[in-house]
Write a protein that binds this DNA or RNA. Structure first.
Length: 603
DNA sequence: CAGGGAGTAT
DNA sequence: ATACTCC
C-alpha cells in the first residue's frame, strides 16, 4: 500500500513524491561552446548590450560574474572572449531539445526559464521499485547529509532511485547534446531546486526530507528562497526578518499582518523546506515576444523602425511556433530618472487571425498583413504616448500574447462549427489555383546566425518579395478534396462562446451584404483595423436568406432541423449570451465531412 | 541590468 | 486589460 496517502494527516510529513530539478551549467556559454569547441579552452563571456550575462567556468576563474559590466569584466580578464547573446534563437532551440529529451521519461516536465526543468518521477520510481531488490539500491551522486536512520515512509529508497533516474537523464542530455548539467533530487520542488547547485558543475545532489528544515537555515537570506523576490524580501526585512531562521521563528500571525493569509502560510512552509506545489507539465508558450532596449528614442519614425524590426523577427518566431496569434501587445519603457528599470507600460488588442495564413504547414503573413500589423502597433503606441509632447523611450517590446485556443468545455454547436471554420480558413488556397508567391516567407530571413553587435536595426531585412494581392473572390472552389480530407490541426481561438467573440467572428466572416442582417452597432470599434478592412468577398453561390455569406445553403439544408434552428438563432442574435445548446453527441455524429465544407475561407 | 516568459492580483 | 512579481 502507498505509505504516503493513508496515514498522514499532516501534509508536511508527506514525503511521497520524488522530484528532480535539472539545471544546465552556464547555459548560454555551453551553447556557444558546443557550437564552437575552440571556445572551450578560452575564458568566454556571453554579452547582451553592455553586460556579461553569463560566462564559462574558465572565465569564472578570473572572477567574471553574472551580470557584470563588460568594462569591468575586461579589466578583470582582458583576454575574455565575448560572444553576443542578444538573439536567443539558438538558446531557445537548445532549451527545447533538452526539454524534449526529458519528456522521454514519463511524468510531467516543467520548464523554468531556458535552462531549468523540474521532473516529477514519483510514478517512475514506484515502477522501478517493483523490479528491484530494495537492499541493492544505491544513491547516485552526492547527498546533502547522511541520513541518520531510515525514514519509515520509505522515502530514502525512493529518492535513491530518483537519483539514479536523474543520472540517466543527465547522461542522456550530455550524450545527445553535449551539455553538462546539475541536478537536485528531493521530495519537493523547493528542496530539489535549492540543492541542485550544491555540487557545481556537472554533478548532482540528493537531500532527504528530514534535513529540509536544517538545510534551509544554511541559506544566507530569505531572498534565496525561490518565489521570494525583491518585494517580498523588502517587506520581510522591514519586519527584521532577514535570515531563513528568522522566518522559521516568526509567528504566523505576525506574517499575516503584512501578507495575505495564503502567502503567510506559504512563507512559513518554505522556511522549513516544505512545498507542495505540483510539477506542472509545460506546454507551448502562452506568449511569444521580443524587446529591444536602448539609450533613448525620442522620434516617432525611429520608434516605427524599432517596431518594424521587432515585428519581422517576431514573425519568424511565430512561424516556427506554428500557431496563429490572436492578440498583440506593445510594451514600452519611458526614461525615468527615478527607477533604473522596470516601469513598463503596455497596451494590447486583438488582431484578426485572417492576417495569418497557413500554406504547406507554414505560417505566413502577406505584405499587406504586415502593414496592417504595423498600423495596429502604432495605434497601440499612440495609446501609450502623447505625441504632442516630447517622449523618451528606453525600451520597446512586441509580443503575441494569445493563440488559437483549443475548444474547451462548452459543447455548443458554435464551438463545433467554429472548429470547422478554422480548419477551412487555414487551408492553402493559393497552391491549387495560384502557384505564384503571394505571401511573405520569412524562412529566408532568419537572424539566427547573427553573432555580432546590435540587433536593433538592419540585421533583419524583409525578404524583398513582390507583394501580390490575392483575388479572394471565388477562391473557395480551389479547395481540393485532399485538403478537406486532411485538414490542418490548427484551431481557431478567437472563437469563444461569449457574445463578444461571437460578434468578432461574425464581423470577420460576414460579407458587407450580410452585415446588414446583423442588427447591432458595429462591434469592431475595439479593433479599427478590422473595421476598415475591405473584406473582399467570397462565395457567390448558394446562401439561404437568413444565413451569412459563408454558409453554403446546400450544406445548411442538409443539417438536422435542430441544428438549423440553433444556427439561425445565433445569426439572428449573435450577442445572445445564452446560446441554445444542442446535444454534442448529436453534433459529432452529424456528417463531419459535410460540416467541414460549411464555411468558405475568409480574407 | 539583458531578454524571455509565467503567474497573480486588481 | 494591465501592472506587478518572480525566475
Amino acid at each position: 500500500m502507498d505509505s504516503s496517502s493513508s496515514t498522514f494527516t499532516d501534509v508536511s510529513s508527506d514525503h511521497s513524491k520524488s522530484i528532480i530539478h535539472i539545471d544546465v551549467d552556464c547555459f548560454y556559454a555551453q551553447v556557444e561552446m558546443v557550437r564552437k569547441p575552440e571556445l572551450r579552452s578560452l575564458p568566454l563571456g556571453i554579452q547582451q548590450k553592455n553586460i556579461v550575462v553569463t560566462s564559462n567556468y574558465e572565465a569564472r576563474k578570473y572572477g567574471i560574474r553574472k551580470c557584470m559590466l563588460v568594462s569591468d569584466a575586461l579589466k578583470v580578464c582582458p583576454n575574455l572572449k565575448l560572444v553576443n547573446g542578444e538573439d536567443l534563437h539558438d538558446y531557445r532551440a537548445a532549451s527545447n531539445k533538452i526539454f524534449t529529451i526529458l519528456q522521454n521519461w514519463k511524468g510531467p516536465v516543467e520548464k523554468l526559464g531556458m535552462d531549468e526543468n523540474f521532473i516529477d518521477v514519483t510514478n517512475l520510481v514506484q515502477e522501478k521499485l517493483k523490479n528491484i531488490n530494495v537492499t541493492s539500491i544505491t544513491l547516485s551522486g552526492n547527498m546533502y547529509c547522511e541520513p541518520s536512520e531510515e525514514c519509515p515512509c520509505g522515502c530514502h529508497t525512493r529518492l535513491k532511485v530518483a537519483s539514479q533516474i536523474a543520472s540517466e537523464m543527465r547522461n542522456k542530455i550530455y550524450d545527445e547534446l553535449g551539455f553538462t548539467t546539475c541536478a537536485g533530487i528531493a521530495h519537493n520542488k523547493l528542496l530539489a531546486k535549492l540543492v541542485c547547485p550544491l555540487n557545481k558543475p556537472n554533478d548532482q545532489t540528493t537531500i532527504f526530507p528530514e534535513h529540509g528544515a536544517n538545510f534551509m537555515t544554511t541559506l544566507q537570506s530569505v531572498r534565496s528562497i525561490p518565489s521570494i523576490g525583491s518585494k517580498t524580501t523588502e517587506v520581510l526585512i522591514s519586519q527584521k526578518i532577514i535570515t531563513v531562521s528568522d522566518l522559521q521563528e516568526v509567528s504566523l500571525d505576525v506574517l499575516k499582518k503584512h501578507f495575505s493569509g495564503d502567502m503567510a502560510v506559504r512563507l512559513k512552509c518554505l522556511s522549513v523546506g516544505e512545498d507542495n506545489t505540483p510539477v506542472k507539465q509545460s506546454g507551448r508558450p502562452q506568449s511569444i515576444g521580443l524587446e529591444d532596449s536602448f539609450k533613448t528614442v525620442s522620434v516617432k519614425s525611429e520608434v516605427e523602425e524599432k517596431f518594424l524590426a521587432l515585428l519581422q523577427r517576431l514573425l519568424i518566431l511565430v512561424r516556427e511556433d506554428g500557431r496563429i496569434p490572436v492578440s498583440l501587445r506593445v510594451t514600452l519603457r519611458k526614461r525615468d530618472v527615478k527607477r533604473l528599470s522596470s516601469h513598463r507600460e503596455s497596451r494590447q488588442c486583438q488582431v484578426s487571425p485572417s492576417i495569418f495564413t497557413i500554406s504547406n504547414g507554414t505560417l505566413t503573413v502577406t505584405e499587406a498583413g504586415q502593414q496592417k500589423l504595423m498600423s495596429i502597433i502604432m495605434r497601440l503606441f499612440n495609446k501609450l504616448i502623447d505625441l504632442s509632447k516630447p517622449f523618451h523611450l528606453t525600451l520597446v517590446g512586441l509580443a503575441f500574447t494569445k493563440f488559437q485556443e483549443r475548444m474547451t468545455g462548452r459543447s455548443s454547436i458554435v464551438n463545433y462549427l467554429m472548429n470547422d471554420i478554422s480548419v477551412q480558413s487555414v487551408l492553402n488556397i493559393q497552391n491549387d489555383c495560384d502557384t505564384s508567391a503571394s505571401s511573405m516567407d520569412y524562412s529566408a530571413a532568419s537572424p539566427s546566425s547573427s553573432t555580432t553587435t546590435d540587433l536593433s536595426d538592419g540585421e533583419v531585412e524583409p525578404s524583398p518579395k513582390k507583394p501580390k494581392k490575392v483575388n479572394w473572390i471565388a477562391k473557395r472552389r480551389c479547395l481540393s478534396k485532399e485538403e478537406v480530407a486532411s485538414p490542418s490541426k490548427l484551431k481557431v481561438g478567437e472563437l469563444r462562446l461569449n457574445s463578444k467573440e461571437l460578434e468578432k467572428v461574425s464581423e470577420l466572416r460576414l460579407s458587407s451584404r450580410d452585415r446588414s442582417l446583423t442588427p447591432r452597432a458595429s462591434p469592431a470599434k475595439d479593433n479599427p483595423s478590422d473595421a476598415s478592412d475591405s473584406m473582399k468577398d467570397v462565395a457567390e453561390g448558394g446562401k439561404c436568406a437568413d444565413c451569412p455569406s459563408y454558409v453554403d445553403k446546400e450544406v445548411f439544408n442538409a443539417l438536422p432541423d435542430n441544428m438549423q434552428q440553433e444556427l439561425k438563432a445565433m445569426w439572428k442574435n449573435p450577442a445572445s449570451s445564452e446560446l441554445p445548446r444542442s446535444s454534442p453527441r448529436n453534433l459529432n455524429k452529424a456528417k463531419p465531412n459535410t460540416l467541414l465544407k460549411y464555411f468558405v475561407p475568409h480574407k
